[in-house]
Design a binder for these strands. Structure first.
Lengths: 342, 342
DNA sequence: CTGTTAGCGCGTTCAC
DNA sequence: GTGAACGCGCTAACAG
């Protein structure tokens, strides 16, 4: 069946366990003849070392925890792929934690930092509060945030304010003046990273710069999701003076907006322009104009930063590094100049 | 920094380590007064037990491995979500392995079964060959396949033949006679589960049943992906006698077909009908007629089956159970009767 | 009820 | 070069 131990191998090869351990770890000081003897013993017993025992002895686990909310979001999947790529390269195992409730969140932030269970932590889209952050850095477990902010913690993210600005500016340059913003809900009891809020301020900044008054009826919040966004857009389009352009906080939400536009018998771009955020894969198929952010790359960068931290003998107290990824507008076919007034 | 051990707690509380272990595991036989004493000691030392040491001692890891190819596919994500849901419920940790090359595949199938690293295995969309299967069942590590077949291994899947039949039959009932099939490549050096092939035979079955001759020029294979499918559909549409309907092996590929139809200046449904497979989320937004398969549910069922196996004291030799999930046609707006000949 | 001790499987000195 | 003994942190079985 299973589990031959190192001792069995030692006996079989007629050597001590120490020697077996040495060949296992490619220790130079072991005679070639005994090495081969041990190796054949290993092969014949079909032996494989126990990772767990190894971990206990070594004090490291060689696996890193990835915690993230909302599995479903395409943007998360892209990031995760990036993470997986580099973790696999460095032979780290990826343990995945999904967090969709406040309780699970608390539980995780309490248990993760302790324990020798993980060599490192990767946290996606979840901004720790000050307490949690303190505990994290205090625990000495290297951690990096991806798509989340916290001063004092290593992190890779984007300039959301600029993203909001870019999207809005594009619409303004096209000639739009009545521009709405469909946002995630800002005040979540569940602490996400307030990207929507920052994009909102970029939106207002662009508006102000162009001398366009901000209108609160053009600013709607709702839970993340196609359906919710569709409803918001419906409300917008039903306004006495509906917007001629809508900026959605994510591509997913932009899809909802697109549907609402169709539902109203209007045509996208011609009647109302739509711009999204993220540039997930479907955005291309939908020909959605959007703000591209490096999703896959964010995962790669975050994981690499973590690996680097891991090797660096954990010089705590070092100030946290921040990696900022570039943003750019991808112009496709859902934006156009506003229809000229009849 | 971290790691107070159980011994520290014992000393602090003035008890033996055994007692501490008992309160940790809620053993009934411990006086209330000492229990509280230990608990305060735990709190004051900010102690948390080492999962690894615990695992070594217990001989179980409380984590299960999920191996799957192609992170990116939306269908995989849905399944993974289902898996995660039940694993979390039962307090199992989810260790994720991505497999996109033959080497990684071999490496994994060699290393996974051994070791006390995992209590169980969940394998998605990857059909083990006979050797691998033998090693799996021989290892005694409970495993279940999701979206993959192998006699002798526990598995949850669908009736792909029937799926292919349903899709094709729908088209036939609509009046189509020239029906093409856009497929994944069947002979992959990389051993996936041959779902496309089975769907193909369902396709042929429906054709035969309706007395429609099979035409090899209507059957194209290509790698999974929007772009590849789009090219195949382009080729199909450029045929002297192009098909009036196209059945795609997945929704992702159906998206490519949709694009190709547009590219040719044709309109979907009116000029050419398209049906997909999977019913991923975007299918709804694209109004794609498709074969719905329970993606999320497949993850749930697979994980639950595994959990059940885990508790059942691993009665090996038991014959493998197979769970078959239902399929159904979801009719949306990409299919319609063929245009009547002018 | 509770303290003590023996493993769990492996890495690592430390002498030989 | 190589074997023996100890320790990693915890659970479980055995005495009290």
């Amino acid at each position: 069946m299973s589990s031959a131990t190192i001792r069995d191998v030692a006996r079989e090869a007629g050597v001590g366990v120490g020697t077996v351990s040495r060949v296992l770890n490619n220790h130079p000081s072991v005679r070639e003849s005994t090495r081969t003897r041990v190796e054949t013993a290993i092969a014949s017993l079909n032996y494989a070392p126990s990772p767990i025992a190894r971990q206990l002895s070594l004090g490291k686990s060689s696996n890193i925890a990835v915690v993230a909310p909302f599995f479903i979001r395409p943007s998360f999947v892209e990031r995760l792929r990036g993470v997986e790529t580099v973790l696999a390269e460095y032979k780290y195992d990826l343990v995945l934690y999904n967090v969709e409730t406040q309780e699970k969140r608390d539980e995780l932030f309490r248990s993760l930092p302790r324990g020798d269970m993980f060599d490192g932590l990767l946290i996606l889209t979840l901004a720790p509060d000050d307490d949690e952050a303190q505990r994290l850095i205090g625990s000495g477990v290297p951690a990096v945030l991806i798509d989340a902010h916290h001063p004092g913690l290593n992190r890779v993210n984007i300039d959301d304010v600029r993203g909001g600005y870019l999207a809005t500016k594009h619409l303004i340059d096209l000639g739009h003046r009545r521009i709405a913003y469909v946002s995630d809900v800002l005040e979540s009891p569940f602490q996400l990273d307030g990207a929507s809020a920052r994009r909102f301020s970029g939106y207002r900044q662009a508006l102000a710069e162009a001398g366009i008054d901000y209108r609160s009826e053009y600013y709607l919040q709702g839970h993340h999701g196609v359906r919710e966004a569709q409803q918001m857009a419906n409300a917008l389009l039903a306004l006495p003076e509906p917007p001629t352009a809508i900026f959605a906080a994510s591509d997913t939400q932009a899809i909802g907006v697109l549907r609402a536009v169709e539902e109203h018998g209007l045509t996208v771009a011609e009647d109302v322009s739509v711009v999204g955020f993220d540039d997930i894969e479907v955005a291309e198929y939908l020909k959605l104009t959007t703000i591209h952010q490096p999703l896959f790359t964010s995962g790669v960068e975050g994981a690499e930063l973590l690996i680097q931290l891991l090797s660096k003998q954990a010089i705590a107290g070092e100030h946290a590094t921040q990696i900022n990824l570039p943003l750019r507008l991808v112009e496709r076919q859902t934006t156009a100049p506003p229809r000229t007034r009849a």
